[in-house]
Simulated scan of single mutants.
Amino acid sequence: MKKEEKIKVGISVGDLNGIGTEVILKTFQDNRMLELCTPVIFGSTKILSFQKKQFNIQANFHGVSSAENAQHGKINVVNITKDPITIEYGKPTEEAGKFAIESFVEATKALKEGTIDILVTAPINKHNVQSEEFTFPGHTDYLGQTLEGDSLMLMVSNTLRVGLLTDHVAVKDVSAAITPELIEKKVNVIYKTLQQDFGISKPKIAVLGINPHVGDNGVIGIEDDEVLKPTLEKIKKEGKLVFGPYAADSFFASSNYKNFDAILAAYHDQGLIPFKTLSFGQGVNFTAGLNRVRTSPDHGTAYEIAGKNQADHNSFKEAVFTGIQIFRSRKLYKKLAKNPLKKQPSKI
């Protein structure tokens, strides 16, 4: 039997003044991770060597000129700069923001070119990464423009999957942003990703209402009655198991979410507050709908504990595991799609 080649996991380092490099190092100091995959960190061997000493982490780095030259069984580092960088833990500096985006852009380029198989991104600060060259609210928006497909933020844990109709949109703009076209597109994306990335042949999807109490028949708002409900009815007629809209305030408290393969929330906090309450530290942010696989941990830069060797790396490790599982599931799905089992003729 041919031995399966290790998956190359590209990693962007995030904000150096946050906990990104700490959780990366803590994840890969476990040598068993190198048996599972081949990490390729887009960063700096000097910075990583400095930080591993600071955190008393046992890890050896192998500098490579590109991801193509990465060696299995080693922690590979693509040096994206030779310039010295000042680390100021807990501070959102312009220098750290610039380096975070350089790392992310280079890693995304490698992902697009296929020299890495999946991308796992450490947290950035959305403010200090802004520049004339990078004007995106975050990772997801840049990936959506750079890669093929329609991106959807999908939060994933062992027991819960929550997608978003709108992600980084101001609350005052949410209602106007939710159109029948957007609803259909996002439902189709989450439906397909449940099939090809999670192996669920007939997914059941719950959709949360836009307004409190799903608008109370127009007393609180008309968007649920006039936009969301008719669109969901149309989707149901196409044969998809889509249910709702459900009142968001009681949906998770009643454990109703356990009856579905995924939940589609109307906006960011409506979906992420219950997700992080139920899964924080074990959750993963997956950018569904694209032709490449990207995951990240469910936390931010955590400036308040940066540099103190207190960061929990479990969510980052889960992001690596989830990315690998999705990559393998998608590969199998494509293989089966190309070579479906032929229907055998009936015997009379």
Results as ranks from 00 to 15, higher is better:
318 E>C: 09
136 F>Y: 15
195 Q>W: 01
15 D>W: 05
110 A>G: 01
131 S>C: 06
322 T>V: 12
117 D>M: 02
311 A>H: 03
318 E>Q: 15
257 Y>N: 07
178 I>K: 03
344 Q>P: 00
20 G>T: 11
264 L>V: 13
4 E>R: 10
71 Q>S: 14
32 R>E: 13
79 N>F: 04
244 G>I: 12
67 A>H: 13
300 G>D: 08
262 A>Q: 03
281 G>N: 07
111 L>F: 10
328 R>L: 14
214 V>H: 00
117 D>N: 15
114 G>P: 08
292 R>P: 00
131 S>M: 12
160 L>N: 09
103 S>W: 07
252 F>I: 11
207 V>R: 01
319 A>T: 11
327 F>W: 12
16 L>G: 12
71 Q>L: 14
118 I>S: 04
197 D>C: 11
98 K>R: 15
246 Y>N: 12
124 I>T: 09
269 D>R: 06
30 D>L: 06
135 T>S: 10
306 A>T: 11
177 A>G: 08
242 V>M: 04
318 E>M: 13
105 V>F: 08
140 T>D: 01
223 E>H: 09
148 E>K: 11
168 H>W: 02
277 T>G: 01
292 R>W: 00
346 S>V: 15
111 L>M: 11
278 L>R: 06
238 E>N: 10
235 I>T: 06
17 N>G: 09
157 S>D: 10
224 D>R: 10
253 A>Y: 07
213 H>D: 04
246 Y>W: 11
172 K>R: 15
191 Y>L: 00
236 K>L: 00
115 T>I: 09
78 V>S: 06
332 L>S: 15
56 N>M: 05
340 P>T: 13
205 I>P: 01
186 K>F: 06
98 K>F: 12
55 F>M: 11
83 D>S: 14
98 K>M: 07
164 L>M: 13
228 L>S: 07
17 N>C: 11
242 V>F: 04
268 H>A: 03
119 L>Y: 03
102 E>T: 15
106 E>S: 13
311 A>M: 04
183 I>H: 04
141 D>W: 01
230 P>E: 08
222 I>E: 15
109 K>D: 14
145 Q>Y: 09
118 I>K: 05
31 N>D: 08
141 D>F: 04
28 F>C: 09
51 Q>W: 03
104 F>R: 03
53 K>Q: 14
140 T>F: 07
190 I>M: 14
205 I>F: 02
46 K>S: 14
61 F>V: 10
208 L>N: 04
37 C>E: 02
324 I>H: 02
127 H>Q: 15
59 A>L: 14
255 S>T: 13
82 K>W: 00
34 L>K: 10
108 T>H: 03
347 K>P: 00
161 R>S: 04
169 V>C: 12
165 L>P: 02
